[in-house]
Computed example of a mutant assay.
Amino acid sequence: MKEMSTDGFTETRPDIDGNDLAMIEELSSFYDRPGFLIRRANQIAVSSFMEDLGELGITPTQMSSLVVISETPQIDQITLARRIGVDRTTISMVVNGLVEHGFVRREQSSQDARRKEIVTTRAGRACAMLARDNAVRNNARLLGFFTEAERECLAALLRRLIDDVPAHAPDWIRPDGTTRFGTESTLARDFPEHANLYNAFGFLLRRTHQTLESVFIETTKSLRLTPRRYGVLRIVDKGQPVEQISVARWLALDGSTTATLVTELVRRGFIMRDAHPHDRRRRLLRLTDAGKQLITDGHPLAFEASQKVLAVLGKDTDTFRNLIRRFIVENDEFSRVPLQRAVTLALRQADI
Rank of each mutant, 00 (worst) to 15 (best):
S5R: 15
E11W: 02
D15C: 15
G18E: 13
D20Y: 07
L27R: 08
F30A: 11
R33D: 02
G35Q: 05
R40L: 13
N42Y: 09
E55G: 12
S65N: 07
S65V: 13
L66M: 08
E71I: 14
T72G: 12
T72L: 12
Q74L: 10
Q77F: 02
T79E: 14
G85E: 08
V94T: 01
F103I: 06
R106C: 10
S109Y: 13
V119M: 10
M129I: 10
D133W: 06
V136M: 07
V136A: 07
R137P: 03
L142I: 06
L143E: 03
T147W: 10
T147C: 07
A149I: 13
C153W: 03
L161V: 06
I162C: 04
D176Y: 02
F181W: 01
G182K: 04
D190I: 04
Y198E: 00
N199R: 06
A200Y: 12
G202C: 05
L205K: 07
T208A: 00
Q210I: 02
L212D: 03
I217Y: 04
T220W: 03
L223V: 04
L225K: 10
G239Q: 13
G239T: 09
Q240E: 15
Q240K: 12
A248Y: 10
L253H: 00
A259S: 04
T263I: 03
L265T: 00
G269K: 09
G269C: 02
F270A: 05
D274F: 14
R282L: 09
K292I: 08
Q293D: 14
D297R: 14
P300V: 02
A305V: 00
D318P: 05
T319Q: 02
N322H: 03
L323Y: 01
L323C: 05
R325I: 00
N331V: 15
Q340K: 11
L347G: 06
R348M: 14
R348G: 03
Q349C: 06
